Measured scan of single mutants.
Amino acid sequence: MATKAVCVLKGDGPVQGIINFEQKESNGPVKVWGSIKGLTEGLHGFHVHEFGDNTAGCTSAGPHFNPLSRKHGGPKDEERHVGDLGNVTADKDGVADVSIEDSVISLSGDHCIIGRTLVVHEKADDLGKGGNEESTKTGNAGSRLACGVIGIAQ
C-alpha cells in the first residue's frame, strides 16, 4: 500500500500549488496538507474528481469521485461524495494553506484517490446545502481553477 501521495495543481491562470497526502494505516485517516497560491481571497471548493484525465484541462477530470452514488455534502457529513473535501481558505495575498484530515478518502482500496484528479474551484462549496439540484452534485463551487493528478510519492 502506498502511504504517501502528492498532487501538483496547475491551471490556465495564476492558480498553482502542491498538496501532499499521507496515510499511516490502511483504514486510518489521510492527512492532506500543502499550499495553493494565486486564488482570490475567501473560500474555494476542494474536491477529488473521478478521473485522472487532464487532456482537456480540468474539465476532463469528470464529476466528483463518488463510488457510493451519494449526494454532495461537506467533509463531516454522512451523506457526501468520497471526493468531497470541503473548502480551502485563501488569505488576502491569495494563498491557501491547506491542513485537512479526512477519514473517507484513502490511498488504497475502494476509496483510493491515487490516479484521480484534485481540483480547486472558483467559488465556495455550499456543502450540499444550497437548496438546488446543482448543490447536491457540485456544491455550486463554480469553474475549475486548477487541477492535477494525484500520484504515489516516496
Rank of each mutant, 00 (worst) to 15 (best):
A2W: 05
A2E: 12
T3M: 06
T3D: 15
A5M: 05
C7S: 14
V8T: 08
K10D: 13
K10F: 15
K10M: 13
K10A: 13
K10E: 15
K10P: 07
G13K: 09
Q16C: 08
G17I: 02
G17V: 00
I18H: 13
N20M: 14
N20D: 13
E22V: 12
E22H: 09
E22F: 03
K24N: 01
K24S: 07
E25K: 05
N27C: 14
G28S: 04
G28R: 08
P29K: 05
V32G: 12
W33A: 10
W33P: 03
G34Y: 03
G38S: 11
L39S: 07
T40R: 12
T40S: 11
E41D: 09
E41R: 10
G42A: 06
L43P: 10
H44C: 11
H44Y: 04
H47D: 03
V48L: 09
V48M: 14
E50I: 04
N54G: 13
N54P: 10
T55K: 03
T55L: 01
T55A: 06
A56N: 08
T59A: 09
T59M: 05
S60L: 04
S60A: 04
S60F: 02
S60E: 00
A61I: 02
A61C: 07
P63M: 05
F65Q: 06
F65N: 02
N66M: 13
N66C: 13
N66R: 06
S69D: 10
S69N: 04
R70V: 04
R70C: 09
R70G: 12
K71R: 13
K71G: 12
H72P: 01
G73R: 06
G74Q: 14
P75E: 10
D77G: 14
D77P: 05
E78F: 09
E78I: 09
E79G: 09
R80V: 00
R80Y: 01
R80A: 06
H81C: 01
H81F: 01
V82M: 12
G83L: 02
D84V: 02
D84S: 02
L85K: 00
N87E: 03
N87F: 00
V88H: 13
D93R: 13
V95I: 06
D97N: 15
S99R: 14
I100C: 15
E101Y: 15
V104H: 04
V104D: 11
S106G: 09
S106N: 10
L107C: 04
S108F: 15
G109L: 08
G109V: 09
D110E: 09
C112W: 08
C112L: 13
C112Q: 15
C112I: 13
I114Y: 11
I114R: 07
G115T: 00
R116I: 00
R116Q: 00
T117D: 08
L118I: 11
V119H: 00
V120A: 08
V120Q: 02
V120F: 05
V120I: 12
H121D: 01
E122M: 14
E122N: 10
K123S: 11
A124F: 10
D125V: 01
D125K: 02
D126H: 14
L127P: 04
K129A: 07
K129F: 10
N132C: 07
E133L: 12
E133S: 07
E134G: 08
E134I: 12
E134A: 09
E134V: 06
E134M: 05
K137V: 05
K137Y: 07
K137I: 06
T138S: 07
G139Y: 00
N140G: 12
N140E: 15
N140T: 13
A141F: 00
A141G: 08
R144D: 02
R144S: 01
L145A: 07
A146Q: 03
A146C: 10
A146P: 00
C147I: 00
I150A: 05
I152R: 15
